[in-house]
Simulated scan of single mutants.
Amino acid sequence: MKDLFEGIAYLFEEVLFAPFNAMRELELENWTVANTVNWLFMIIGAVAMVYWVMQLKKFNDNNEESKDVTAHSYL
């Protein structure tokens, strides 16, 4: 079992986090390059929010949403 956990630790520390270790070295040189992952997540979140709001509007325009008092159990 010890080898299994050491293998998982190696996978995460040496393989999956390698890009983050490389970006850590760039942090002192260029702030924007070091925070590209944060910007990427912010862009993905903004796109997902716009998509979600458009879907809500589509269902609202088609009157597919049940708005009566018994529609939700917490009401």
Rank of each mutant, 00 (worst) to 15 (best):
residue 14 E to G: 01
residue 47 V to M: 12
residue 5 F to C: 06
residue 47 V to C: 12
residue 8 I to A: 08
residue 45 G to A: 13
residue 51 Y to G: 07
residue 30 N to P: 01
residue 17 F to C: 03
residue 72 H to P: 00
residue 40 L to R: 05
residue 39 W to G: 07
residue 25 E to G: 02
residue 64 E to C: 04
residue 70 T to K: 05
residue 63 N to D: 14
residue 50 V to F: 10
residue 46 A to M: 10
residue 13 E to V: 05
residue 42 M to Y: 11
residue 75 L to D: 12
residue 52 W to T: 04
residue 13 E to R: 07
residue 9 A to S: 13
residue 9 A to I: 14
residue 2 K to V: 14
residue 74 Y to M: 06
residue 22 A to H: 03
residue 34 A to S: 14
residue 2 K to A: 10
residue 41 F to M: 08
residue 54 M to H: 03
residue 58 K to H: 01
residue 63 N to K: 13
residue 43 I to P: 00
residue 75 L to M: 09
residue 30 N to I: 07
residue 50 V to P: 01
residue 62 N to F: 00
residue 20 F to C: 08
residue 56 L to F: 05
residue 66 S to P: 01
residue 52 W to K: 02
residue 12 F to C: 13
residue 27 E to R: 10
residue 72 H to I: 01
residue 8 I to H: 01
residue 31 W to A: 15
residue 58 K to E: 00
residue 70 T to D: 03
residue 57 K to V: 15
residue 53 V to A: 05
residue 60 N to K: 02
residue 12 F to T: 15
residue 8 I to Y: 02
residue 74 Y to V: 08
residue 61 D to N: 09
residue 45 G to K: 04
residue 21 N to H: 12
residue 71 A to C: 09
residue 27 E to C: 04
residue 7 G to H: 03
residue 48 A to K: 07
residue 15 V to Q: 13
residue 50 V to L: 07
